[in-house]
Simulated assay, not measured.
Amino acid sequence: MVDAHRPALEIQGLTKRFGEKVAVNELQLVVPTGSFYGLVGPNGAGKTTTLSMATGLMRPDSGEIRIHGVNVWESLVEAKRLVGVLSDGVRLFDRLTGAQLVTYAGLLSGMTRDVVAERTADLLALLDLDTAGGTLVVDYSAGMTKKIALACALVHAPSLLVLDEPFESVDPVSSANIRDILDGFVRSGGTVIVSSHAMDLVQRMCDHVAIIAQGRVLAAGTTEEVRAGSTLEDRFVDLVGGRRHGEGPAWLRTSSDSAS
């Protein structure tokens, strides 16, 4: 059992460099247990790098990461038992069927075949993939692929889910079904961290949010606190900058006239 009074994820002084580029710069972040936490930022802000280090996929240059009090890089195996990960852009073993892929993920977690078989069947039914369980993942749609990857992240019953762009290229029906599953996971005491570019979705879905840019946290707290009376998108643009005001060049505004 995890301690509900201890943060699900605690990051202190996290830093990662790639050559001369500082991707993550002394980043600090605390994710409360039982929260639905959104992580937003522009491309290249360091979100994916941060999540990769937080879940044991990439070693940081410095800093400390704890999942429910477990130091990730001192007790990697123990920490990984606590977290389920859906990484954006990571290739799945797509020459396996959906059922085989989830089974493989479960066996890697050290569960018995009987338990894995039961959980795989439950997850395929929950994600509306039971009829596609015998189909090769390479033949799945984008939405089905996201859902089978989510099943792989859930099969070992983690207490923390870390999802990088889980709704990208996903149709509205699959997106709504995934959100319902994640809401249920949080209501049952789990914690979800979602990295996404969809500001409106994060605002509606998440009770906490952090805005990251240039490898640092610019604002973090409850969604209402971070919004500060504005929309999350407007608050994001105010903090990150880069918005260009104007209607564009004259030729673009009169293009309909020139075409006639």
Rank of each mutant, 00 (worst) to 15 (best):
C206G: 12
C206N: 09
C206I: 13
D207Q: 08
D207A: 03
D207M: 10
D207K: 14
H208G: 12
H208C: 14
V209I: 01
V209L: 02
V209A: 09
V209H: 04
A210F: 00
A210M: 04
A210N: 06
I211T: 02
I211K: 00
I211M: 03
A213V: 04
A213S: 15
A213L: 03
A213K: 07
Q214L: 06
Q214M: 08
G215F: 09
L218A: 07
L218I: 04
L218Y: 04
A219I: 12
A219W: 03
A219H: 05
A219Y: 05
A219L: 05
G221K: 11
G221C: 11
T222H: 03
T222P: 01
T222W: 11
T223G: 13
T223Q: 13
T223Y: 15
E224Y: 06
V226Y: 14
V226K: 13
V226T: 10
R227I: 08
A228M: 06
A228Q: 12
G229F: 04
G229P: 14
G229L: 07
S230P: 01
S230Y: 00
T231C: 00
T231I: 04
L232F: 15
E233P: 07
E233W: 07
D234M: 09
D234Y: 15
D234I: 09
R235D: 10
F236I: 00
F236T: 02
F236K: 00
F236N: 00
F236D: 01
V237A: 11
V237S: 08
D238S: 03
D238C: 01
L239W: 09
